[in-house]
Amino acid sequence: MLRVSGLTVGYGEDPVIEGIDLEIAAGEFVSLVGPSGSGKTSILRVVTELLVPLAGVVELDAPVRDVGFLFQDDALLPWRTVRENVALGLRIREVPAAAIDEQVEHWLARLGLAGYEGRYPGQLSGGQRKRVAIAQVLALKPRLLLMDEPFASLDAIVRTRITQELLEWVEREHLTVLLVTHDLEEAISASDAVYVLSHGPRATIQARHVVDIPRPRRLLESRRHPTFGPLVQQLWTELSTEPPRR
């Protein structure tokens, strides 16, 4: 579904990431973990064409319009209601009005936002805003979903609940996902594979780990799987290693 080869991204003289190779098969859930500033977000921005790389190739088995991007901030239009925000992508794609209404109703009900249609983002809690952002992206039926620490700002309970709901949806629809996160436990419990980025600048992929926990998964139960603890420990060790002085 997504193949990244030799990707180098930089904003000045020093590349932030250099020579990144990464591959995600259709229906696979892959996480990317790494230290702050290692350029994880840059990879997602290149895939969605928000950023032009210095070098490298991104191959997608789908048009870029089939890529959904859940940002770290919910970034909803403050002057649009919940309904209008969810409908935004569909309107941009000139979907007929009746179909938009149907989709919006479906997603609002699905994500527990029924009754909030007429509210503005400023009137919602952080968790509700995230749900609106999820509805906005999923209403477009993306084939590849990119997530940039989308739930980092939420408290642990809301975060686990929303992640679980999203995971169930992803498993049911066989969506392909690339998740960028700092949270090692979240990465392992949700993913089929975890890529580890080294310290930047010039960060590279230093390891790829396959997560051998059967699906469908429950986030909290996954953490009791025998492979979970050792994998957390291994990722922790890899990420704690001080970068060599250049």
Binding site: L50, G68, G89, L140
Partner: peptide
């Protein structure tokens, strides 16, 4: 960026 990634 949000609107751009939605296809705007």
């Amino acid at each position: 960026e949000r609107v751009r990634t939605l296809g705007g």
